[in-house]
Amino acid sequence: MKPRAGLGAVFSRTALTLYVIVMLIWLLFPIVLVLLASFQGKLEVDFSLAGLNLEAYKAIPPAYWQAFWFTVRAAVSATALAIVIAVPAAWAMVRGRLRGRRVLSNVVLIPDVVPQLIMGIALLTVFIPLHLSNNFAGILLALVALSLSTGLRFSEALLEGLPEEYEQAALSLGASRLKSFLLVTIPLIAPGIAIAALFIFMQNLVTFELLFFVAGPNATPISVRLFSDIVDRGVIPYAVAMAGILVYVAMAFYTLVAVTLGPKYMAGSVMSRKG
């Protein structure tokens, strides 16, 4: 090997390592900043790490916690509803070999494909006369519509991965279609559906732009609450603390999925969400 190539290799290796480190820092810094600031109770980050305290966390007002639990309730309900609607639909599409299957998939995809800004504006106009704006039901409906495409995609994939023979065996043994669905299909796809539910829940928890237009004083998701406070009043320490809490929730979610599935899964499924 020529010595020049050796030097080149060393140079490129250090350059590469530097690049990865820089990228890592870039990817990490917002979260690090937010977490640091949340423990310092100020509006600026002090890298000397002096005076770490939990004051900001303790100062989180009840209104924020209300918004947080409201969001959790809405996200859980929307996820449950989305699953309950998507799984039978996917089952009918896959097992029933429906001819309009692609049409259905594409229609359900619409809320996902249309930019949330546009979707939000459209919903605003319709929800107001229906008294669905500033309303838990309105938020719920919007989230369900958004979650259906993910739910359907997961369910379709799960059902196609499940050999039809199991349900056929159940039928031949005397089970009705409903019984075979409940006793054989559901238990076998349940683990996959649980993972799907987790993903959908997280998506629903952090949806912002869509819900901004249909939210109101009575129905404020936490993302909207944090947003309006920063726009109206600037950065407040306890708001930063709340943001920190959301980071912990995201970390918990990631740990849960990574532990059950392995990190490889994350690249594929998270990839599909526009973020």
Binding site: L27, E209, L226, M266, V270
Partner: peptide, 11 residues
């Protein structure tokens, strides 16, 4: 990479 995508833009 994953955790930032599980946060609302406000953060």
């Amino acid at each position: 990479i994953t955790i930032p995508r599980m946060l609302p833009f406000v953060v």
